[in-house]
Design a protein around this nucleic acid. Structure first.
Length: 501
RNA sequence: GGGUCCUUAGCUCAGUUGGCCAGAGCAGCGGACUUUUAAUCCGAAGGUCCUGGGUUCGAGUCCCAGAGGACCCA
């Protein structure tokens, strides 16, 4: 590596450190050793080696333990002159290599090329050191991959929050907690997938690139499809394509996929995030609510061992059944009025003013109502609570309730004061759906650029007949935050969005 | 969008009211050491104090602007 190829941010001193490590790689080459060999002689993972030794010690402590070849990253190096201790780490554990000049002979000198962060392998019998540490008594060592840059400091780990996000690999190397957390996120997604599969849902994949992104109220990312010279948008929801599959006769489908919303960032918002959506024919939103209870209690148990998971100073209890309250009752309870008595934008504005809620500019009734609920109702919903029967005005894809045609069969699930899931009895009346889309277009014409666009092909699909269906959307990142007691979405996303440097 | 705070060696951090050449630990480099595990001991190095202006005899420190980040509010 020449200096001109290095990032300009590398200081002179860092370049010296890199040059020293490079010189060690060159010394290996000159001695006939490839510092980046194509293959390793590994016989065991470190975790397996430790297990084998413990089993051997328990069964026949008088005999010699088997020999192994293990490989890993050097995380500590203690050289005593004629004996050295090298701590190796792989994804399964950490083990000490006891390297002595006597046992290694000529290859003892290879240790001169070893630095923290390098990947090396060592072969020899498993033993316990005098201080009781399980070790590989090396009779051979080899470089597997020479690291040119130094790792973060070993004792304090990597503290700088910006570096932890921008160079997540360093966070994973240096901070076991970060690695555990992100591993847990994977286990949550995996548990969700298992739950859906076991219930007979078919996992599908639908387009990310869409002519007009629909299915949610959000601003899309815009891009261009060169091959057809047409504009495209990145999806903001999975909804409309999954429901086309219900029309097609797949009665239980789900997708866990990345969606993109061109909006702000924050502790609970990342512009690209992972959503689960599922649709099940022949059920309604009550059926979906029961499934959500089963899913969350299952995942909590799989991941934390209990349906009660630590959350901030207390805990969240995912033991079914969750609380259920209608939107009408919740607003009565926390605001003191029946919101149906405030049907106009002007009336809703007055209600917000009376309750000290700031009024967003150019907001229609729906946005104002949403603001009121966000400010005055949602923060109270700490334990898992289904908020049922939303206003039709903010729910263009959900079916009306039978008792009030200004309300729809929709719930959002709140946990810790934030929305975790959203579900409907899906609107399958194509005529009503067209009217709802047309109302959205009117909102868009008045300046609401988050209103839905009319998806003609989706209407045509509904005209072919969609069975009664319950649908669900759940934010997997927020679920991961709740299950791991994380206060920032960046902590549960491997590579969170950061400003370009 | 508004506010508060942060940015000093590869990493983790000190740095007093503005005052001599900006310090420590770890890592690295040279040396000692055959049972260490934050190894120990000796030695010598290592700095765009985030960037750019300004105030001042003198700025890591005070002021202004900018960059990046964290948190709070809308």
């Amino acid at each position: 590596m020449t200096e001109s190829q290095q990032p300009a941010s590398d200081t002179r001193y860092l370049r010296e450190i890199i040059a020293e490590r490079q010189a060690k790689a060159d010394a290996l080459r000159n001695g006939g050793f490839n510092p980046y060999p194509p293959r390793t002689g590994r016989t065991h993972t470190i975790g397996d080696a430790l297990e084998i030794f413990r089993a051997h010690e328990a069964a026949s402590p008088e005999t010699d333990a088997p020999s192994v070849t293990v490989g890993g990253r050097i995380v500590a190096l203690r050289n005593m002159g004629r004996i050295a201790f090298v701590d190796l780490q792989d994804d399964t554990g950490q083990i000490q290599i006891l390297a002595s000049k006597r046992a290694l002979g000529e290859s003892w000198n290879l240790l001169d090329a070893f630095d923290l962060g390098d990947f090396v392998e060592a072969s020899g019998p498993l033993i316990r050191s005098r201080r009781g540490e399980i070790s590989v008594q090396a009779n051979a060592v080899a470089m597997l991959s020479k690291a040119l840059r130094p790792p973060p400091e070993k004792y304090h780990g990597l503290q700088d929050i910006e570096t932890r996000y921008r160079q997540r690999y360093l966070d994973l190397i240096a901070n076991d907690e970060a690695k555990d957390l992100l591993r847990t996120r994977s286990r949550i997604v995996s548990a969700m997938r298992r739950f859906m599969d076991e219930r007979g849902f078919l996992e599908v994949e639908t387009p990310v690139l869409q002519s007009e992104a629909g299915g949610a109220a959000a601003r899309p990312f815009l891009t261009h499809l060169n091959a057809l010279d047409e504009p495209r948008q990145l999806r903001i929801a999975l909804e409309l394509h999954l429901k086309r599959l219900i029309v097609g006769g797949f009665d239980k489908v789900y997708e866990i996929g990345r969606i993109f919303r061109n909006e702000g960032t924050g502790n609970r918002w990342n512009p690209e995030f992972t959503m689960l959506e599922s649709y099940e024919a022949y059920t309604d939103y009550h059926g979906v609510a029961e499934m959500v209870e089963a899913a969350l209690s299952f995942i909590a148990t799989e991941v934390t061992g209990s349906t009660r998971v630590p959350w901030q100073d207390g805990e969240v209890d995912f033991t079914p059944p969750f609380a259920r309250v209608t939107m009408v009752d919740a607003v009565k309870q926390h605001v003191g009025v029946d919101f149906r008595d405030y049907p106009t934008t002007e009336a809703m504005e007055d209600l917000l003013r009376d309750n000290g809620v700031a009024i967003p500019p150019d907001a229609g009734w729906g946005k104002l109502f949403d603001e009121l609920v966000s400010e005055r109702v949602e923060p109270h919903l700490q334990q898992p609570t289904f908020l049922l029967d939303y206003p039709l005005a903010i729910s263009p894809l959900a079916k009306r309730t039978e008792y009030d045609d200004t309300l729809v069969e929709r719930f959002e699930l709140f946990v810790g004061g934030w929305e975790l899931a959203n579900a409907y009895t899906e609107l399958n009346d194509p005529v009503d759906q067209r009217e709802r889309f047309e109302e959205q277009l009117r909102l868009r014409a008045t300046g609401d650029d988050e209103a839905e666009l009319l998806d003609e092909d989706y209407i045509v699909a509904l005209e072919h007949g969609m069975p009664p269906t319950g649908g669900l959307g759940m934010g997997m990142d927020r679920l991961a935050m709740l299950m791991t007691n994380s206060q920032s979405i960046r902590d549960v996303i491997l590579f969170p969005l950061m400003r370009k440097l």
